[in-house]
Amino acid sequence: MAAGGDHGSPDSYRSPLASRYASPEMCFVFSDRYKFRTWRQLWLWLAEAEQTLGLPITDEQIQEMKSNLENIDFKMAAEEEKRLRHDVMAHVHTFGHCCPKAAGIIHLGATSCYVGDNTDLIILRNALDLLLPKLARVISRLADFAKERASLPTLGFTHFQPAQLTTVGKRCCLWIQDLCMDLQNLKRVRDDLRFRGVKGTTGTQASFLQLFEGDDHKVEQLDKMVTEKAGFKRAFIITGQTYTRKVDIEVLSVLASLGASVHKICTDIRLLANLKEMEEPFEKQQIGSSAMPYKRNPMRSERCCSLARHLMTLVMDPLQTASVQWFERTLDDSANRRICLAEAFLTADTILNTLQNISEGLVVYPKVIERRIRQELPFMATENIIMAMVKAGGSRQDCHEKIRVLSQQAASVVKQEGGDNDLIERIQVDAYFSPIHSQLDHLLDPSSFTGRASQQVQRFLEEEVYPLLKPYESVMKVKAELCL
Rank of each mutant, 00 (worst) to 15 (best):
T354M: 13
Q320V: 12
M26W: 08
R33Q: 11
L211N: 15
P56Y: 08
M225W: 15
L186Q: 03
V92R: 02
L461W: 08
L155R: 03
M476W: 02
G156R: 03
K264F: 13
E360H: 14
L69I: 07
D144A: 13
V247G: 04
Q409P: 11
E220W: 05
V247P: 02
I436Y: 09
E343A: 14
C483P: 14
Y13S: 13
D349M: 03
T166N: 11
Q221V: 06
D441C: 00
Q397K: 06
P298F: 15
T227H: 02
T347C: 14
E370K: 02
T382D: 00
L307S: 09
Y21W: 05
M89K: 03
M181F: 10
S306V: 11
R338T: 05
V465T: 11
G8V: 10
F345R: 06
K170N: 12
L69Y: 00
A388D: 06
A103P: 01
S31G: 08
I265L: 12
K367L: 13
V115D: 03
P435S: 12
K477E: 10
G203T: 03
T111R: 02
H310V: 08
F157I: 14
N357G: 12
T239F: 15
E148P: 07
S112V: 07
L69E: 03
F232V: 09
L121C: 09
E148C: 06
N185I: 01
R374M: 15
L121P: 05
E60T: 06
Q221S: 01
W45E: 11
A410V: 08
V226C: 11
E48P: 07
I373R: 07
T94I: 08
F460W: 08
R149D: 08
D120A: 03
H263N: 12
F160T: 00
L222Y: 04
K367P: 09
T267D: 00
D216P: 09
K233S: 05
E79V: 03
I106K: 00
L319H: 14
S23W: 08
G156E: 01
P281V: 03
P56F: 01
M26K: 10
E213Y: 00
E370V: 04
E148T: 04
D182Y: 04
S151F: 02
Q63M: 13
H91I: 08
D215R: 10
Y21A: 10
I139A: 08
G96A: 04
N126T: 06
R245Q: 15
L443R: 02
T111I: 14
T382A: 11
E81V: 02
L46F: 11
A260Q: 15
M387R: 07
L331V: 09
A273T: 02
M476T: 09
E283S: 15
L255Y: 07
M225S: 09
F232Y: 13
E462K: 02
T52F: 01
T350A: 07
S306D: 03
F232Q: 07
E473A: 05
L461H: 15
R459Y: 14
Q210G: 06
L130Q: 05
T202C: 10
I339F: 11
M26I: 11
A103R: 06
A348L: 05
M76P: 02
I269K: 15
D422G: 08
R171K: 12
S412I: 12
D73I: 05
F95M: 12
S140W: 00
A308E: 10
M89V: 05
L461R: 11
T58M: 06
E401Q: 01
K66R: 06
K218W: 13
M312D: 15
Y294Q: 08
D398Q: 06
N384V: 09
S257C: 13
V115L: 10
T350L: 10
L84Y: 11
T94D: 01
T347I: 08
A47H: 07
D120H: 09
C266K: 04
P366S: 09
M26C: 02
G169V: 02
D6L: 13
K246M: 05
Q320A: 08
R374D: 15
A78M: 11
A78N: 08
R37V: 01
S253D: 07
H97P: 00
Q164I: 07
A2F: 09
H91P: 10
H7M: 14
V247E: 07
S289A: 03
L341W: 05
D192E: 08
Y13G: 07
R374V: 13
L271W: 10
K477S: 12
E343Q: 13
I351P: 02
Q221I: 04
M89H: 04
K170D: 04
I265R: 13
R137N: 13
P162C: 03
Y34H: 09
M76C: 12
V457N: 14
S438W: 06
F232K: 05
G361P: 15
E417P: 15
M181I: 06
F74P: 02
C483T: 06
C27K: 01
R188K: 06
A480R: 15
Q51V: 05
H400M: 01
P435G: 11
I123L: 04
G288I: 04
S112I: 13
A273R: 08
A273Q: 00
S257H: 01
R85V: 11
G4N: 07
S67K: 14
D333K: 04
M299A: 00
Q356C: 07
S253M: 15
R125E: 00
G156V: 09
F379T: 09
E360K: 11
M316S: 05
E401D: 15
R194M: 05
S412Q: 14
F28N: 05
I373V: 12
I287C: 09
S290E: 08
D11N: 15
S359I: 12
C98K: 12
A335D: 04
K224V: 05
I72D: 08
E417Q: 10
L469T: 12
P162R: 03
S447Y: 08
L130K: 02
S407I: 01
V315Q: 06
F95L: 09
C173D: 10
A256Y: 00
V363M: 02
I249T: 05
S253N: 12
K229G: 05
A3I: 03
I339C: 06
F208T: 03
I403Q: 06
D87K: 04
M278E: 09
T347A: 08
E250S: 13
R149E: 04
F28R: 05
M389C: 00
L42V: 04
R396L: 02
L42P: 02
A110E: 02
V368Y: 11
L258V: 15
Q161G: 01
N353L: 14
I287E: 08
T347E: 02
S253A: 07
I57R: 07
F236M: 07
